[in-house]
């Protein structure tokens, strides 16, 4: 198995005597796309904040590979209007960057023509892509995207997932996707983690869809439609459940 980039081990986060996260285990390895789903208020963003070191864990341990280079695309960033910031300057936020490389990343995400625009003038979707381009600049070992498909239409979303898969292949990085579109998640992720304050289920998409708690959370209809979503197996089951080749 490839190397572990980050891991949460029985992590708990407490706020006002209430557990936002309780006994959460999560592992992300190099080259793996992990999708995190779950209801609103289920602690997805909290888990991400623990992973990036923004929030301390009140219980459990957080493992991080030494010298781990994280590219993080937050769900939203509000940049105060008083802060002059062009797209190009934003690309150099956490350190100097080569202008040619910046242009390359911006053009990959289709926002090269915005490179000299003030970030405050971008639309939500444009800004999201700029932040994505920025996160890729440092060739991260781990890419964390919090709700990257916000404000995208279905074809746009599909393209985004293709891009994420390409990037994973090119950089051999781990990817953590926080996501609410079950359809996409079930079709594209290697591993799905469903978080509702605790990890209610985790595994391959097909395994998840038949999980009892998952069905309870998302309703039998959704679960059924995803269980039927086409996916590939490298084996078949006989009627008695035995694996046949």
């Amino acid at each position: 198995m490839s190397r572990v980039l980050v891991g949460l081990r029985s992590v708990g986060v407490q706020r006002d005597h209430r557990w936002l996260l309780h006994e959460v285990d999560l592992t992300i390895r190099a080259g793996e796309i992990v999708s995190m789903i779950g209801p609103n208020g289920g602690g997805k963003t909290t888990a991400v904040q623990v992973l990036i070191g923004f929030l301390p864990a009140d219980a459990g341990t957080v493992e991080r590979a030494e010298g781990l280079n994280i590219g993080y695309v937050p769900q939203q960033v509000h940049i105060n209007a008083t802060l002059p910031m062009t797209v190009r300057r934003l690309m150099k936020l956490t350190g100097p960057q080569d202008d040619g490389k910046i242009d390359e990343r911006l053009s990959e995400l289709g926002v090269l023509d915005l490179s000299e625009s003030p970030v405050q003038q971008l639309s939500g979707g444009e800004f999201q892509r700029v932040l994505f381009a920025r996160a890729l600049l440092k060739d991260p070992d781990l890419l964390i995207l919090d709700e990257p498909s916000q404000g995208l239409d279905i074809p746009g979303e599909s393209r985004l997932y293709d891009q994420i898969a390409d990037i994973r292949d090119r950089l051999d990085c781990g990817v953590l996707l926080v996501c609410h579109n079950l359809h996409m998640v079930m079709a594209r992720a290697d591993t799905v983690v469903c978080l509702n304050r605790h990890v209610c289920c985790a595994g391959r998409p097909a395994q998840i869809a038949s999980n009892e708690e998952f069905v309870r959370l998302f309703g039998p209809d959704i679960a059924k439609s995803h269980a039927l979503y086409p996916h590939h197996h490298d084996h078949r089951h006989r009627l008695d459940g035995e694996v046949s080749s």
Binding site: Q49, G53, F54, I70, G71, Y72, M85, T94, K138, I144
Partner: peptide, 15 residues
């Protein structure tokens, strides 16, 4: 500057 833009990005990128 990175703290001013986003505390979370600054935190993720060891600033």
């Amino acid at each position: 500057i990175s703290l001013t833009v986003s505390e979370q990005i600054a935190s993720a990128e060891n600033m």
